[in-house]
Computed example of a mutant assay.
Amino acid sequence: MTILLLEDETLIALDLQYALEAAGHSVTALSSNQAAYAWLDDNTPSAAIIDLKLRDGDSRALADRLANSQIPMVIYTGHDIENTDLAASLHQVPILKKPADQEGIVATLHAQLAAVA
């Protein structure tokens, strides 16, 4: 199972990658919207963990694309999302606020995967 991890903070990305790999997942860790769109041209993840604000911009459109493709995901962000307009496709996606423990993030992702199984 391949998990797309879209996170531009290196230490957070590494911690999450290790936690996901320890749970038996293959991880593609990317740090920009540009890299994620390029990767998605040729790949389809089993699930995703997405930060909404990256150095190269907002990733809500990318998250919407994944949701519309029925890709289970978790949004993990340190930014204020209460005042953020999210596409209707993202209203049921769990949103975890940074910082959160890796085990909780992985458990939330597993719940999303189980919901579509």
Rank of each mutant, 00 (worst) to 15 (best):
Q92K: 13
Q102K: 11
N43Q: 13
T77F: 12
R60I: 15
D41M: 13
Q112W: 07
A63Q: 06
L4D: 00
Q34I: 12
A38H: 11
S89I: 01
L4G: 00
H110M: 11
L62I: 09
A19Q: 00
I50D: 00
D80L: 10
L66H: 05
P99G: 14
R60N: 13
A38E: 14
L40I: 04
L62T: 01
Q70L: 10
S59W: 02
L40R: 05
L62G: 02
P72A: 10
D101G: 00
N43C: 09
K98P: 03
V106A: 04
R60T: 15
A22H: 10
Y18I: 08
I105A: 00
Q92S: 14
L52P: 01
A29W: 05
Q112E: 03
T10D: 14
M73R: 03
S32M: 11
H79Q: 13
D80F: 11
P45F: 06
A23M: 08
A22V: 02
L52E: 00
L5Q: 03
S46R: 01
Q102Y: 14
A36V: 02
M73L: 12
Q34A: 15
A35T: 08
S31C: 13
L30G: 00
R65C: 10
L90F: 05
Q17I: 03
I49H: 07
I95N: 03
H79C: 12
A47V: 03
K53W: 09
K98F: 10
A111C: 03
D85T: 12
V116L: 08
I49E: 08
L11K: 05
A13Q: 04
E21H: 01
Y76E: 05
N33F: 01
R60S: 11
A88K: 14
D101V: 04
L90T: 11
D101R: 10
L5E: 07
L54E: 00
I75P: 01
I50E: 00
A88G: 09
V27R: 00
D51I: 02
A87M: 08
A22C: 03
A19I: 07
V116K: 09
A38Y: 09
L4Q: 01
D8R: 04
A48Q: 06
H25Q: 04
A111R: 12
G24Q: 01
I95M: 13
Q92G: 13
D58C: 03
E82R: 10
A13G: 15
N33Q: 12
D58H: 04
A36M: 02
T77E: 07
I71V: 15
A22I: 03
L11R: 09
